[in-house]
Design a protein around this nucleic acid. Structure first.
Lengths: 336, 336
DNA sequence: AGAGGAAACATTATCGTTAAAGTATATCGG
DNA sequence: CCGATATACTTTAACGATAATGTTTCCTCT
């Protein structure tokens, strides 16, 4: 207990080099008014004793926390999406000196609560948001306070901010195209919650696809909000009824699995009576149900890129230059 | 920019009440040498202006960070395990004043690195570990430094520390029992990585079960380390060969799915030629493959309980009183 | 009445860091 | 050779909180 070595501080280095703590600080930050020789001496000593600046001191003085905050919806989990995202962020944060903090936000509480908390306590230097809405109030608040953030998905209000989004419109359009090429006629799509921005993109891609390839829409009484067991049951009913769809587009792996399970329950075979196209959130999907056509949305990459963008934003890079739209990469070859 | 209201500090309250900052501090912490009336006045003002103690100041002065650190293996993801755990921790942390930070640890790097970082920078007040090994060097280090932590899973070295574990031995024993009751004779089990503590528990439960119910073991050339696609392929081969197992026990949902996929590829039917028993990590498993027998390991609950235990440990509660072993709850009724 | 003590506050110092302002020495132009 | 400037530091102050120590006031007891 008592023989614990306290971690070295600026004072330690100051004592060892015979300088003042200020000079040590300025030497380490490569200030112009410190001699070259001195700087090298300080740097040497610092690395020898393994000096790491004290976060609390730094934060108190500069106001910077060296932390990024991920705002997480604790309710819904789309098969591994969250962990992939966290892994991606973590990887990008490696050796940057930044830590990642996770801030839960539940469905039934005010989404602004975690943001306000972060803003007030300055417990993070930047925020990572997911499940972005067109007129997202969290985005509005962060823009208003001029606080750095990045979103997964876009807003739709003429706001300029860093984002990383998957081209869902193109994905759905290409999905429709693929189904059309396979001779499918009556397509259904399982839409994400209306309030999310990409719901609009999906609708646009779908409608355009139906028009361009002269297909009709089979209406499904299912949305992503529906519990998966019910998705399965509903799908089974529909497949047993009149005019079932012969192509279904799903926006997540879990939905795709639920849908395919329902279809099998109805005695139909995926790849035969109908095809399923899915955004691949889970690597499991591809070997589990190889008959499902999947496009890779690389969530791990998204996490990395969002983090890089946010760090750049914090460094002062303009929001305009930090907007990325990634495009679907199809896993199964055209003919297959 | 300039009209930003700075968050209130002790100084603000001191000014408003005409007291010194120290008295305000002591009033808020209910110190004995502050008058009752004064305390109430201070508390009133504090709540009116929404005072929140500055974390950096607190941390610098007291050394406490008000953060718990979750050490995450970034490599492997067992279908939603990580997010369930994070969600559980987050829920338990709600309104405690503690934040959660995520510290990645990759398979190919020294597992002590994140721990050392936390210890040196004191960036957290407690650590949450997963994938515990019998002679876990992270545990050894943390015990040596007398730093609060909790593990998911037990160690095996006569160490005393808070843990939360699932009774895997009982789970496997009961799994064998269930299979025996269904008339199964040749059982296989897909074991987790040898280095993890619970691998031993599983072996013990399995061997005991085989003895008690007079069954034989069907050796599988598969471990959890095997990529899932290969698990599927291997399973298919085995089912096509001579002396295939008629019961398989899996330690995670993803493995169970891979196994069942392999079995179907071989033209066999789960629930008919053989049964699968799985620890249910993913809610998807249960509705997707109702024929798989599953026991609930509630990871969300594990996260909550581990967090509570760690917070108690930080408050000084003895490690002995913070050890929990949860027991399997079987989802499918006996007869089914 | 004066000592002693308790009650209720205030002052000072400190955690580790950096910005701002101050100081000593060397260098240079004229 | 003298003042101006540059160089290379040091000193002081501050971020927000709390621990340790001081100070005032008033009450009690003998």
């Amino acid at each position: 207990m008592s023989d614990e070595k306290l971690p070295p501080t600026l004072k330690t280095i100051a004592f060892m080099t015979g300088l003042s703590t200020t000079s040590v600080s300025r030497a380490l930050s490569d200030a112009p008014d410190i001699g070259q020789e001195t700087k090298e001496r300080v740097r040497l000593v610092a690395s020898q004793i393994g000096y790491q600046p004290n976060r609390a001191g730094l934060r108190l003085r500069t106001g910077r926390a060296n932390v990024l905050a991920l705002v997480l919806n604790v309710d819904d989990e789309i098969m591994g999406f969250t962990s992939q995202m966290i892994f991606g962020i973590s990887q990008a944060l490696k050796d940057t000196g930044y830590n990642l903090s996770v801030n839960p936000s539940s469905h039934d509480s005010n989404p602004l609560v975690p943001i306000r908390g972060i803003l007030q306590s300055r417990s993070a230097d930047g925020v990572i948001l997911m499940r972005t809405e067109p007129d997202d109030e969290r985005v509005r608040l962060l823009l208003e306070k001029d606080f750095p953030f990045v979103t997964h998905g876009r807003t739709n209000s003429g706001w300029t901010h860093p984002f990383y989004d998957f081209n869902n419109e193109r994905f759905v359009y290409q999905a429709v195209e693929k189904l059309a090429r396979r001779g499918r006629k009556r397509l259904a799509i399982i839409r994400p919650p209306r309030n999310l921005t990409y719901a609009t993109h999906i609708a646009a891609g779908f409608d355009q696809g139906l028009r361009d390839f002269s297909l009709t829409e089979a209406i499904l009484p299912i949305s992503v909000d529906t519990p998966l067991v019910e998705v399965k049951a509903a799908m089974e009913n529909i497949m047993r009824g009149a005019l079932p769809p012969d192509g279904v587009i799903c926006m997540s792996a879990s939905i795709a699995v639920a849908v395919s399970a329902g279809i099998e329950m109805a005695g139909k075979t995926v790849g035969k009576e109908l095809d399923i196209v899915s955004k691949q959130f889970s690597p499991a999907l591809n070997w589990m149900r190889p008959e499902i056509i999947t496009a890779d949305e690389d969530v791990h990459l998204a996490g990395r890129e969002m983090t890089k963008a946010l760090l750049a934003r914090i460094r002062g890079v303009g929001a305009h230059d930090l907007q990325t739209l990634s495009h679907p990469i199809w896993r199964n070859p055209e003919g297959q």
